[in-house]
Amino acid sequence: MIRALGIALVFWGGLSQAQAPSDGMALLRKIYLATEKLSYTGTFVYQQGDRTETSRITRVTGPGGDIERVEVLDGMPREIVRTRDTVRCYLPESQTVKVERRVDQRAFPGLLPEQISDLMRNYDITRGKTLRIAGYDCESVVLTPKDDLRYGYKLWADANSGMLLKARTFNRKGEIVEQFTFAQFAIGNVSRDQARTRHSVQSWRIEDAAVAPANLARAGWSVNPALPGFRRVAEVTRMLGEARPVGQMVYSDGMAAVSVFIEPVAGRAETVRPGLSSLGAFHIYTREVANHIVTVVGEAPAASVQRIANTVEFRQPQ
């Protein structure tokens, strides 16, 4: 009897293992919908290496459009506010506001619900252990990469609302690369005013990114992502900083994203140091191609960022 029970348990265990991916997918979809729909306020901590930074987040959805505002409370003050088609980054110390407006139809291209299932090509998606975070019982989903080209992710979401309350990025050794954790969180009871900036910016310098769709291939540039699962999701020209025109191509596997920036060497005051720099989950790799500086910025392991950077080529258009 006991043996039969044991076999039944093993069988049941195997069965629930087999069901795990779809369970994980269901939780990802729930998180996605909660991110779209919920109005909330909260305080979260961002950790990377030995650095911790607290920020306050406010989001209001509903008629009149969604507004979301993040204020960084530690270190250099800054505030980011997103409306449907515009992101503004306020930097009070330099009295600068950086503005980015979207030109394409999709307000802000992100992960789409149908793409969530595409994630299974590059990640094993399983359910993790439940955990209590900021007073909420959370369910978790783990995205374990199938290769070394991307990081893994562990996400914890409120079992009721689906709100993501903790997100961890880990490398192939299982070490934490960076982590976001809510310390305090409340759904609802947010007025639109709370999501607006307090800064009056009349006298501030405005840096408009002037994003425009582009075809950099026609200009002679080619990038072969050479990374399985990564495809191009955006190709634009834009201004960077005060007024430096750059081309930007973005590649993504649905979770990780890598941007390739291309700009002329001429006119750059700063000397450019080719090489790799690491900033937590980000790697930045710089090299020179045909009198242009290629800067590849990615939320991916160094080798992946370098691989993309090394395939950037220029051929004189015919």
Binding site: R102, A167, S259
Partner: peptide
């Protein structure tokens, strides 16, 4: 702005 993580 192009990171899929914004959606989650």
């Amino acid at each position: 702005g192009y990171s899929p993580r914004n959606s989650l």
